[in-house]
């Protein structure tokens, strides 16, 4: 494996040089539980799925965001997934809509590293899941006859 000769060059930022010093010193080993969650991440792989990437959401005109409800939009394969994220009591509520509505037999699966909740989509493509733990989540849309579409992993922390 060859390395570029300018590895420690002036273009490197402070954090990266600090990370390099720490990594080379071996004084800050990865905690076991961090390694365990990294290993467990593999259990959430979804072979053949299309990843829906974040899209810009037009800001609602004339309304100043209160910071509570957040609208996230993801898109892939001609499908848009809109998610309203709200939190109460330290838990996260998701209300989602898949556009265009995929029709009968479609499901939305809300996945977190520790649990998965499955919902049948309404005829208008809507679903809701309440009381999720804060942290990383991904929504997978399953449609009969199509590969699944999964929103890229996103972190939600309660306000």
């Amino acid at each position: 494996m060859t390395r570029a000769p300018s590895s420690f060059g002036s273009s490197s930022d402070d954090e990266s040089l600090i990370a390099a010093l720490r990594l080379a010193s071996g004084h800050d080993p990865v905690p076991d539980e961090v390694t365990a969650t990294a290993r467990a991440a593999f259990g959430l792989r979804l072979p053949g799925a299309a990843t829906a990437r974040p899209l810009a959401v037009p800001a609602p005109s004339g309304i100043r965001s209160t910071g509570r409800a957040r609208l996230l939009r993801f898109g892939a394969d001609g499908l848009t997934v809109d998610l309203d994220v709200d939190s109460s009591g330290g838990l996260v509520d998701l209300a989602g809509r898949v556009c265009p509505p995929p029709g009968a037999g479609a499901r939305a699966e809300v996945r977190t590293p520790c649990l998965t909740e499955s919902r049948e989509l309404s005829p208008t493509g809507q679903f809701a899941v309440v009381g999720l733990p804060p942290g990383w989540f991904s929504v997978v849309c399953h449609r009969p006859g199509h590969p699944p579409v999964a929103t890229s992993w996103t972190r939600i922390r309660p306000e």
Binding site: S7, F8, S12, A19, A20, P54, L71
Partner: peptide, 23 residues
């Protein structure tokens, strides 16, 4: 308000000058 704004592909964006990769 929305976190997941990400570059399309962070790979290969010229990070050969990264010290942490070197070590």
């Amino acid at each position: 308000t929305a976190e997941p704004v990400e570059p399309a592909d962070p790979v290969g964006a010229g990070h050969s000058a990264d010290p942490v990769l070197a070590v």
